[in-house]
Nucleic acid binder design. Structure first.
Lengths: 200, 200, 200, 200
DNA sequence: TATGAATGAGCATTCATTCAT
DNA sequence: GATGAATGAATGCTCATTCAT
């Protein structure tokens, strides 16, 4: 009983932290802001997270997991490879739209990681995230190649990386431009273009 | 009277700021760090920039201008459209490699801008930057379409956006992964893939 | 939950601030000095006052109120007008002697207000303070006139202003001269002189 | 020739300093403000004054001398004692009105001196100033007593002190109240009241 | 367990003063 | 002699974290 409470409250804190971090960014977010958003006392956060960094990192982990699950679900379809590829690419955009705040926070975090020479365990999580994403797309692409549905326009790893890059990049522009274009539509067109270009 | 080339010194400070910001990020960069890197007293920075934010924004402006010039130069070639498109796409990668620190700092800054609802004059500069980049690529694509060298796989605007997205996204992954793959090569392959896919 | 009497602590801080401001003046007083005098950490002051200026202004308000109450009490006596006038004038001196630090701080503050063109809400408080003081003395003088105890040597407002001026001026000299004369005695003689001069 | 220049420039600096100090107060006055007001370079001030404090103290000395001379001139008249006393008292007000900025600056300075335990050579100057002022009025009062024109309502020293106190106090109120009453008129009435009250 | 109170480490910024020319 | 450039010492304020209850 107690245990459930703990887990539940932890989630609630992370949920609040997501909102505040997305709005203010890491450095401008005060612990008291998060506490206030959740409706608890400042010190209570420290019962669940060692410090601000751990709170943030826990949130990152949660978001990465959540996003990955969403995309993996899309890949689990039983259709033909073309459709599956299209569906996965589309899911890359959908996931960012659906959890826009998550994207904001993740991108912020990734940008922070760009600091020269920064190396931390949390970076490994990020690499895992990307590795999983790539494996997903690589697998589909290789599958298509084996089935002679796709032609090998570039090595599978490269292909996967490019697809992800395009999704990241487009979403990035979309948010930076204050959503001044239709990301879903752009994404769909991208997906089609890519799939067409690799279809044998 | 001490004769000092104000413009030159300003540049020196920005150069030092670039190094420190790239290494530590905006918030962890102390004015005294920058001063030390440049080899001056910290108060001297305030003779050239009103405050830390203005120093940072001035740096952003400088970097955006510098990057844009580099890419514009690549587009000024007189070759056929396919080559010009390839060259421009390649320059997108080269510019980031050549001025890696610039990319780090710019991305950090852009990520900061993701904060919900943030609107500042400096954002306009960023939009200008992207607008210029897109115009460049759109122009080449449209030119190719007119000359029947390219087929219209998607609207020119969309095409330009996608190309930039891919460059941004790949470079992003490249830095995040500690340069674990060959960005120039990946870029070249991307460029070829794209150009091939649109060539009539 | 720590139970703290917020009001009491606020008072303690103001008490400490009074001592330090009286000793060092506004500008040379550091927040850490005040904190140290009170025996708390400097950040704690900011729990009770927004900033240094607000701390100072709050102190000014407190002192003005305190002084006014003391003088009003003196005026509440039920004796004849001559005695009441004498008593109030004497209280003007007594109050400054009793709360010498308050006088130091208030005068410092008033002197600051002399800066050309300075206009702030806090100035209104000062005007209220003087207005109350003047009303007190005017009332007694008018009362004496009505009862034919006093003759009208000058308009009541002018009279009140002059009495206050003399008290301020004498106390000022007293402190500046390092208390080299007996202010109480001087004040008493002044009071007698004034009362005699206006007595019919 | 050089010498005259030096003295003249020194005066110009003090004149500028008076304006700036009167407007901003000691602490908010920056050396560069003074330099700018005078129309010279910052460093030039240091050719004439060791530092900011010496500049300020020199100004104080100048003002005290200037004010004292004005009042002494008023006292040099050859009329009867009543008129002379009246004239001197009036001059106390006039001098402050005529050199309002001087009064602002002097009062600021005096208020600063109130800081507990402050003892400096400059304080002696101030004591001299007041001592001279008091001697002036005492002399007239004693003269009047000797000539049986005045009655001894209080000891001459006390009388002098009270007269000065009233002038200081009234002028103080006048400036604090944004000159909301006619100081010259109030002063004249005060002078008359005092002279009447002591006239035998 | 929950929390408001307390706080010191940390940092941007100002400005009197010095110095090189 | 005159001065603009350079700067370090000084300080108000913030905020993550701890602590007492």
């Amino acid at each position: 009983m107690m245990r459930v409470d703990k887990v539940e409250k932890r989630k609630k804190i992370l949920e609040g932290a997501l909102l505040v971090f997305a709005e203010k960014g890491y450095h401008k977010t005060k612990m008291v802001d998060v506490a206030h958003k959740v409706g608890i006392g400042k010190a209570t956060i420290y019962e669940y997270f060692r410090n601000k960094e751990e709170l943030f990192f826990s949130l990152i982990e949660l978001l990465e997991t959540r996003l990955l699950h969403f995309i993996e679900d899309a890949a689990r379809s039983t259709e033909d490879v073309e459709s599956r590829l299209k569906r996965v690419i589309n899911s890359l955009f959908e996931v960012y739209i659906r959890w826009e705040n998550a994207f904001r926070v993740l991108l912020m975090f990734w940008a922070e990681l760009l600091r020269k020479g920064e190396t931390r365990p949390i970076q490994e999580k990020l690499k895992d995230f990307y590795a999983n994403l790539m494996r997903l797309i690589e697998t589909i692409y290789k599958d298509g190649l084996k089935k002679r549905k796709f032609k090998e326009v570039m090595p599978p790893e490269q292909f996967a990386r490019s697809v992800i890059a395009m999704a990241d990049g487009l979403t990035f522009q979309w948010i930076l431009s204050n959503k001044s274009f239709d990301l879903i539509d752009s994404g769909r067109k991208c997906a089609e273009f890519i799939v067409n270009s690799v279809t044998a």
